[in-house]
Nucleic acid binder design. Structure first.
Length: 466
RNA sequence: GCUCCCUUCGUCUAGCGGUUAGGACACCGCCCUCUCAAGGCGGGAACACGGGUUCGAGUCCCGUAGGGAGCGCCA
């Protein structure tokens, strides 16, 4: 039997972290098993589904590299099929029309809640033989017995049918509901493994009953633990970014996010770093945890830095270009973006951070970081800066090694520690207290701009002294 | 309220009856050092609780507590 899985998001917002993790596990399992990964858009809720959200899902999946082998299918395009199945169920006496008013249902619910019971439909219309009408259709759930299935994550799971009720499978406007359409789709698409969040665990027995009413084979289920916010509550906006694409915009690398997500609810001994191929070869549903996990932004940041440090400079250079552009900077040809990447990649947690830390290579200094200027661009720095300027101007070749020697020479001549020379130079050329090693920084900046900025700083000090 | 699910350092987790309970992130200290990083070394930090079962329990069973989810003409 070849494995067929599906990722079935509903397009009612962004693709969030939890959805992405579900998609990843599903995709990994399928790749590992040599199966088929299907993308299905569950857009039966026409009120809340939007085209923009559909696009966001496609963009996010593409960015993460989780390509589908089949689909996308759209549930809204399959209404005829759902209705045919519902009619079949109706004809077989496995479903029935119900004309109970919403008022009655609301009242019933309230009464049950007040009595300390679980709100459930009471089956009033089950044997009422309601005439064809613009009303709702309910599934005749078995009244007794148990639903048993072996969840690949949770193991043997048992529900009493007595806990379930006759759920609506067709709304009064003629559209099918979720529990019906998933089952029909998974049946038609010959899905062998339903891998989804364990918020669906409670829906599973209802769905199993529908499969059985349809004489369809019941797929295997794997219910993944949820991802919660740092405070243990359901992931939401207030936990920072939840949208996958927001992480892209904030300068995260897709491989970092993937590596972070794969370790949420899954592990392989002590290994923390996984290439995509390692994930595919090592991933197994039997190693998935049952307990929910909390999202930890620090670890994601660490992984992102890890991947930036090891990233290919040419690839990162193109990314850096786009992040610089977002900051309103058009990096020309120099300094070379990949050289800048090489200088910055071990000191950047995100690409946005790298872009911000690299602005000064491409933009004139209009003002200095106040604290840095106060500390380093003071009268005592004037002489070192002048000497450095002279030494650098006299250099034969603008090489890192030469620059390094020149700066060291000034420190020696003045009997100063290197920091007393390098740090004023750093503030002078970068505008702030942080940059790559001073020789690398100056080399990247080029002789002309370096000398100009040293002059600028020297006059800044002179003016301040007045 | 009812039903279901879950429970090892702050966080992600290893552990699948006998371990000084391991790793990673974060944190702290030291080293390196022109800044910031990176890197190296070291440190503190956990089996929710109570009963069983067993020679022996983080590991198995039952309760309790805590957390999560579901209970819609949402998905």
């Amino acid at each position: 039997m070849t494995v067929r899985t599906r990722f079935a998001p509903s397009p009612t917002g962004y693709l969030h972290i939890g959805g992405a993790r579900t998609a990843l596990f599903c995709w990994l399992y399928t790749r590992r098993m040599g199966g088929t990964f299907i993308l299905r858009i569950e857009d039966t809720d026409r009120e809340r589904s939007t085209d923009a959200s559909v696009q966001v899902i496609h963009d996010a999946m593409a960015w993460l590299g989780l390509g589908a082998d089949e689909g996308p299918y759209y549930q809204t395009e399959r209404f005829d099929r759902y209705n045919a199945v519902i009619d079949e169920l109706l004809a077989n006496g496995k479903a029935y029309r119900c004309n109970c008013s919403r008022e009655r249902l609301d009242e019933l619910r309230q009464q049950q809640q007040a009595a300390g019971l679980k709100p459930r439909y009471d089956g009033k219309c089950r044997n009422a033989r309601v005439e064809d009408c613009n009303c709702v259709i309910r599934f005749s759930n078995p009244l007794d017995g148990q639903v048993v299935f072996d969840d690949l994550v949770h193991g043997r799971t048992v529900f009493d049918n007595a806990e379930l009720d006759d759920l609506i499978i067709r709304r009064s406007d003629g559209s099918p509901t979720y529990n019906l359409s998933v089952v029909v789709d998974d049946m038609d698409m010959k899905v062998t493994h339903v891998i989804r969040g364990d918020d669906h665990l409670n829906n599973t027995p209802r769905q199993v009953n529908i499969y059985q009413a349809l004489n369809a084979p019941v797929p295997a289920f794997a219910h993944l633990p949820m991802i919660l916010g740092a405070d243990g509550a359901r992931l939401s906006k207030r936990h920072g970014s939840v949208s996958v694409l927001e992480y892209r915009d904030e300068g995260f690398l897709p491989e970092a996010l993937l590596n972070y997500l794969v370790r949420l609810g899954w592990s392989c001994g002590d290994q923390e770093i996984f290439s995509l191929n390692e994930m595919i070869n090592l991933f197994d549903l039997s190693d998935v945890n049952k307990a929910a996990s909390k999202f930890n932004p620090e670890k994601l940041l660490w992984l992102n830095q890890h991947y930036i440090m090891g990233g290919d400079p040419a690839r990162l250079a193109e990314l850096l270009r786009s992040y610089l552009q977002k900051l309103g900077i058009d990096p020309g040809d120099e300094p070379s973006l990949s050289d800048v990447v090489r200088a910055q990649q071990e000191r950047s947690k995100t690409m946005v951070e790298m872009a911000m830390a690299s602005e000064f290579f491409y933009r004139d200094i209009h003002e200095y970081n106040e604290k840095a200027a106060k500390k380093h661009l003071k009268a005592a720095a004037a002489e070192p800066l002048r000497r450095v300027r002279t030494e650098l101007a006299d250099l034969d070749a603008w090489q890192t090694a030469n620059i390094h020697e020149a700066v060291n020479r000034v420190a020696e001549q003045l009997g100063l520690k290197l920091g007393k020379v390098a740090q004023p130079v750093r503030v002078a050329v970068s505008g702030g207290p942080i940059s790559p090693p001073i020789d690398t920084t100056l080399h990247l900046l080029g002789r002309q701009r370096t000398l100009a900025r040293l002059d600028q700083a020297i006059s800044f000090i002179a003016e301040r002294a007045d």
